[in-house]
């Protein structure tokens, strides 16, 4: 039981320790920044593509959407164009709601047994935590582009300004930092304390959570406690994207810890459940139109069936059929 929680925790702490040491020794710094980042990105990029190609290699032999609303049928029956799409537009809308708003998770409810009655009540916690987590993660990732792009695109500037508009503390605490911290804590609490979720959780579920928590923590520490030289970091980032990497002096070790954790996350990505990011787009129960009777769907590996033909059937039962007055092909 404990191994699946402690092992990933230990791995994350080990990464922190190694990066802390590596980041403190100046001749190792290129290894813990430039090399690590290149390798991690290469693994992510090629690994992600390889996984998607691997999925795509398997065909979708049957049209099996999960229909979540009224089918398209008689003209006077109002059909559910998004939850049970029969057109490409409908499928795109369904995918939009699924990918951007977590439609299926929004349906979530909890069922409890109380004095003989099963009570189904809506629960939006998981949806809220998941949505808050993913969107703040996205915003933080976009914000980080300011380190890599020169000049900084207006979109990134604007997002940055909105994200920091509450001006809490100095330097100001970003809204996305608050939300992601709350959400990731909530998600961890679910895993640790909700009996059903704890029961199904594996090391592979705790590991990315611990990793992300460590990334957030080191990020916040860098901003508020162990300030790093942001111009130096920017110079490093610029060097990396222009493929002329230099490692400026004076970047604190905490930065290398942050970076090592991020690199671990992206390198781990293609081999993990995090691939749900790619998988959701290819899920046959969501991305197919419910046109099963309207349009022919081809199965590339279809074989003609071996079945008991009518002729064999009539040969088998001719006497009975004759007696019962059923029409026959051959008397």
């Amino acid at each position: 039981m404990a191994a699946r929680i402690l092992f990933p925790l230990a791995v994350v702490l080990a990464i922190v320790a190694v990066a802390l040491i590596g980041g403190s020794i100046s001749f190792l710094q290129p290894l813990f920044s430039v090399a690590l980042l290149y390798v991690a990105f290469a693994i992510f990029f090629f690994g992600f593509i390889a996984k998607v190609i691997n999925w795509a290699k398997s065909p979708v032999p049957f049209r099996i959407p999960t229909t979540a609303g009224q089918e398209f049928s008689l003209p006077w029956i109002k059909w559910s164009k998004i939850d049970n799409p029969s057109t490409l537009g409908g499928v795109l809308m369904r995918m939009f709601f699924e990918v951007c708003l977590f439609r299926s998770l929004f349906r979530n409810m909890r069922t409890d047994l109380r004095s003989g009655w099963l009570i189904h009540s809506p629960t939006k916690w998981l949806w809220l935590l998941a949505l808050g987590f993913h969107y703040s993660f996205l915003i933080i990732a976009i914000r980080h582009l300011r380190l890599f792009l020169h000049p900084i695109p207006g979109v990134v500037e604007t997002l940055d300004a909105i994200d920091g508009m509450f001006q809490i503390g100095i330097p100001p605490l970003y809204l996305s930092d608050i939300i992601i911290s709350l959400c990731v804590t909530g998600l961890l609490i679910r895993r640790l304390f909700l009996p059903k979720v704890r029961f199904v959780s594996l090391a592979a579920d705790y590991f990315p959570l611990f990793l992300i928590i460590a990334i957030i923590t080191t990020g916040l520490l860098m901003r508020f406690v162990f300030r790093v030289d942001i111009t130096a970091v920017k110079a490093l980032a610029n060097g990396i994207v222009s493929f002329h990497p230099v490692v400026p002096k004076g970047i604190g070790a905490i930065f290398f810890v942050h970076l090592a954790l991020v690199c671990t996350l992206i390198a781990y990505f293609p081999f993990s459940k995090l691939m749900h990011m790619g998988g959701i787009f290819m899920s046959p129960t969501r991305n197919l139109a419910n046109t099963s009777r309207m349009a022919y769907h081809e199965n590339p590996w279809r074989q003609p069936p071996k079945f008991h033909s009518y002729e064999e059937y009539e040969d088998m039962y001719r006497d009975y059929m004759k007696e019962a007055g059923l029409p026959l092909e051959r008397e």
């Binding site: 999925w55 065909p59 579920d205 046959p284």
Partner: peptide, 15 residues
């Protein structure tokens, strides 16, 4: 079956 392959890979065990 792409369904089977993807479903083996992407479950996050959200519960």
């Amino acid at each position: 079956h792409r369904s089977f392959k993807i479903f083996m890979d992407i479950c996050v065990r959200c519960g």
